[in-house]
Write a protein that binds this DNA or RNA. Structure first.
Lengths: 105, 105
DNA sequence: CAGTATCCGACGCGATACTG
DNA sequence: CAGTATCGCGTCGGATACTG
């Protein structure tokens, strides 16, 4: 790695990019407890605007961490859920949090 | 956590903030192999400018990950090294990289 | 209800020139 | 050698209003 030193293909950089967005960890946390509709996520993260929430959800979906299921009803209903890949992230996040408790407190 | 949902005190957010800067992981990697002078770091990460390198080093120092030792000579000499705290981060970074290899490849 | 469409400001990062 | 000092730009996130 020291020869190239291009952080683009650094595995750590690539991994934290998955959940590096401003609200992504929070969204993942909310969805880890339950499948949720768009509005339900908003209620649990009041500070986020619709535009930004939409963006973060789209990116999480593009990275395969969450799934989006649209029911063709009126009024519309959309449900977001963690994918298996998204769930696989949880142990890692717990490890990171554990590191902090141990090394910082 | 779901009650507050303020990511400021999220342990994962706080932890990745330590090495979240544009070049910090690379700098930590360079210093993990050896104590290095300012110019030596620059040679190993050619794409970084002096200004940004200085900024990232100052932040890493402020967070206690690296140490800065200034020798009062002419021409000036400054040596950067990982602190014990900085070294404690390495296993975590290895874990993150391992997660990627296992779950993405 | 679940989004788009605009507009905008802050910040991180970069390029370049200068200095003790 | 190891930095500062400026200037500037792109991207991310935020505020607000509108829509199928």
């Amino acid at each position: 790695m020291e020869n190239e030193l291009d952080h683009a293909d650094c595995p750590v950089t690539a991994t934290i990019a998955l959940f590096g967005g401003r609200w992504k960890l929070l969204i993942l946390y909310v969805l880890s407890r339950n499948t949720r509709r768009f509005g339900e996520i908003q209620v649990r993260i009041p500070a986020i605007s619709k535009k930004v929430l939409t963006e973060q959800l789209r990116e999480l979906e593009a990275d395969g961490l969450i799934s989006r299921k649209e029911y063709k009803e009126l009024p519309p209903r959309v449900e977001y859920a963690l994918t298996d890949f998204g769930k696989s992230l949880c142990p890692l996040l717990i490890d990171i949090a554990a590191w902090k408790r141990k090394n910082i407190g």
